[in-house]
Structure formats: C-alpha cells, structure tokens
Design a protein around this nucleic acid. Structure first.
Lengths: 246, 246
DNA sequence: GTAATAGTGTCTTTTAGACAATATTGG
DNA sequence: CCAATATTGTCTAAAAGACACTATTAC
C-alpha cells in the first residue's frame, strides 16, 4: 500500500494520509468531585486496545462533519444528549506511534456540562461511565495516548478556572453564589475566600440576580444567572497569586 | 474515488481520510516591529491559491515525520535554518471548506526566533519574506484560511506575553534588561514601567547576570542570560491588570 | 431562642503604577 | 561639566487574603 513519495502538491490523491480522529474530554461534577466520561473500547477483532477505557471519539466522518468542532459536538450529543455545552479545543496530537493502525492525528476538545440526570448511553457492545478524577487523571491506564490527552485537558481546565468563569458551565442555568463558589473549590481542590470571591464575581459583571431565592433550613440564598451565557468571562487576575502551570 | 461509508473501525484502510497539513507561524522582531514569515504559493497548475502569500507549511510526510512537532520543526529549519526555536502548538483547524482539494485539517504551531542575520530562503519557484504585523495580521489577504490562523497565533502570542517570559526568545542568548523590556513593549505595543518590570523579572528568577556589560555612550548595562533557557517562566500576574482576551 | 448558611465589613499584605532620584559611562 | 541611559527608591492605588461580624430563614 506504500507509494513512492510524490512531489508535494502534485497528484494529491496519492499522498498517503494520516488517520484523523476527534476525541472529547467531557467533564462534570458528581458527588462533590470532578468526573470525566469514558467509553470502553469494543471487543471486536481488528480493534486495538480491546475493552480498555478511552475518551469518547472516533474518526472524522467526511460526509457528515462539516468541520472539527461539529464532529466534537456530534460525539458529545451522541453520548450525553447535551446540545450546547461549553466546548473548547485543547490541541492536537499526531504521530506514528499512537495508533497501531498507522500514522494518526487526533483533535482533542474538552466540554463541561451540568451534572446529568440520566446515565450516559453508549452504542451497542460498549460500556460508558463517569470516572472520578484523582490528581492528574483516572486510576486506570487508558487506550492509545488518552492518559496524556486527559492530563492535558485537566491541566487546561484547572489553569483556566483560575482566571475565568468556566465553572458556571458545571451548573444549571440558575444558581446561588455559594453554588458557584463550590464549583470553583471542587475543580481547584482548595478553599476560596467567600468575600474575595463575591467581590470578583460582581466586579466582572458575570451574573445578574433573578427574582427568586433558594429556601433551606437557613437564610435563603439569592439566585443568579449568567449575564452573557455564551461568552466566558476573564477575570483580570488569577484567584490566588501563585505560579500558573501551563 | 468516493467509497460508501464503511462501518467505523472495520476495514480501516477504506475510510476516506482528510488531508493533513502542518502550518508554522514564525515570529521575529525586525526594525522595531513584530514580523511574520510568509511564503508565496507556487504558480504550478493544480495548486490552489497560486502566487498568494501563505504560512509556511504543507502536508505531513508520513515517512519522514515521526510526529506533528517534528514536522513543524522540519519546516522551520528548512525556511530559516534555525534549529531549536521556541515552538508551541496554537491548535488545529479542519473542515470541508478550507481547501478546495477536499476535507482538510491543519495543525498550527507558532515559533519565535531572534532577528535573523541572513534572509530566509525558500524552495525554487517560491518567494519567502518577512512581513510586518499590523494590528491583527498582515496587510494582504492570505491563502486558505491562513488569515484566521495568523490572527489566532498573534492573539495567543500577545496574550501569553502578558504573563510569561516568551519575549526572551526574540533575543540572542545574552541581553540587557532594557533589551528585554523593549521586546515586551514591541509585542504588546504599549509602554511598560521600568521599575515594575525589573522587579517582576528578578522576582521570577528569570535571568542571571553574566560577567559582562554592554558599553555605549552612557552608563554600561549589565548583560543577563536565561537561568533555564528551555523552560518558559510564568509570572504570577499579568503585566497590567486588564481584561485578557483569550 | 439555636443551628445553619447568606451576605457584609475591616484590616493587612502584595504588587503594580507613577515618578523621582541617583549612578555611570563617553565626550 | 553634559547627555544619555542604567538602576534604585518612594509613594500610592488596587485587589486579594484572613477573619470577624451581621442577616435571615426553619425549627
């Protein structure tokens, strides 16, 4: 199947092309902790990494996907039913070694969704489940180079949470400031000062109050929603002045 | 040449694969301004965007390139002769529309090099030159979606310069603090306070003095070099507390 | 009243910003 | 000496960190 190297740009159909995939790192918060959605690799012959856990993803469908992002959205919709999550590209990884079937390149996206009500559902013959994130990944080794891809996505997430409104996408449309602070604390795995947090959030014009409160066995909390739900907000400084990693 | 859609994962060789390219945005500072290296598209038949300016790049060579980054390094070496620049991935762009030859995906890197002594040299039949960056790009429209890719790289660069040591890679190994500050001011296109700048740089353990000074018609300046030339340094805060634009 | 969480205020520390002052060379 | 740039210091302002205080509900 190998073809002698053609002159670049001439006879384009004969250049040997890498395999091209999209993988999606889907985050949510369940039971007080950050989780990621994984699918088990099929057990069929010819498939590499049989029965190992992997990021949801797969080959680009040239007929169906108009671009990379819509491919990522399609995969996310298929696995979770979520229509419009927060979605951002992490980057791409490609090389000879990462897939035994040949030179391959994958485009990695990460998504954040509110805690789902229904369990995820995979295709037939595949399992699908949420796994808690411990430190830099999940407890088991993943298929392909997905351990590395997941680690990169976690790092991007943690880093960006320091200076953006990203954790709002882990909540339903209406939330209290305590809810929001709680999401920051879960992702960053550290305590955040209530007073400074509220000052920051208000100064950034991130939220507006809705005409409702959340009752409980204590003082009711004001409910808020995002002022501009489509745009993420950048804070002028990071939460705690410490070294940024990436 | 179209093949009816095979079941995914089975018979992998028959899946229609996108074209895969790598493009490199190479920055340097010439004559007090940020410049980017562009090449002219060849004038041969079958080539799209004939004679238009484009980012240096091209198809992955599955035989020669072990991974995406070494492909980017190869292209940079071919155009500039530079062996070990600062190189970082910006992201990937893929879709049906961006290349008239078919569904294509490109992996974009950006590099920063010191002002070169020699002019760049392209392959035969191609021109190659440095172009000044004005606001968000260059003055002419580029081939493919390269105007968009260049804009993304510029935004990444400007944003990251706010809180990292990146501009050091625009200088030779030894430089004065004024030199370094000057690079920041050129990339960010604004004045930076001398005193605050020096405090920041020293607090970050970015540089160490070498036993030399640079003479001139005034007080000589201490020469410094990077303490860890291979690692970029992250400052705990941005230079000026203002909104970060991604 | 108490328990519990929501929300505010006060003081300190850190660091950037503005700008002044001093230092060191060549001529 | 002067011109020019290097280097340091001083004061102020903005924002985070720590922590205490007040507010409002269910019971």
């Amino acid at each position: 199947m190998k073809i002698s190297k053609p002159k670049q740009g001439i006879n384009i159909g004969n250049i040997e092309r890498p395999l091209t995939t999209v993988d999606v790192v889907i985050f949510t918060v369940l039971e007080e902790g950050l989780h990621v959605l994984l699918v088990s690799r099929p057990d069929t012959p010819d498939e590499p990494f049989k029965k190992m856990w992997a990021l949801p993803g797969g080959f680009i469908d040239i007929q169906e996907d108009i671009d990379l992002e819509s491919c990522a959205l399609r995969k996310l919709r298929q696995k979770t039913g979520v229509q419009s999550p927060y979605l951002e590209q992490v980057g791409s990884w490609g090389g000879l070694e990462r897939d035994p079937r040949g030179w391959s390149a994958t485009h990695v996206y990460f998504a954040m969704i509110p805690a789902p009500q229904k369990p995820p559902h995979g295709a037939q013959n595949t399992e699908i489940a949420w796994f808690p994130i411990t430190e830099h990944g999940v407890k088991m080794k993943l298929a392909f180079d997905h351990t590395k891809l997941l680690e990169a996505a976690i790092q991007r997430l943690r880093n960006k949470v320091e200076y953006t409104s990203l954790p709002a996408y882990l909540l339903q449309e209406e939330f209290t400031l305590s809810d929001l602070q709680h999401m920051y604390e879960i992702v960053l795995e550290r305590h955040i000062e209530k007073s400074a947090f509220r000052t920051r959030v208000f100064a950034a014009d991130l939220v507006e109050p809705v005409d409702k409160v959340r009752a409980g066995p204590n003082r009711p909390a004001q409910l808020y929603r995002l002022i501009h739900p489509k745009e993420i907000v950048y804070f002028p400084r990071t939460f705690s002045p410490r070294k940024i990693n990436e």
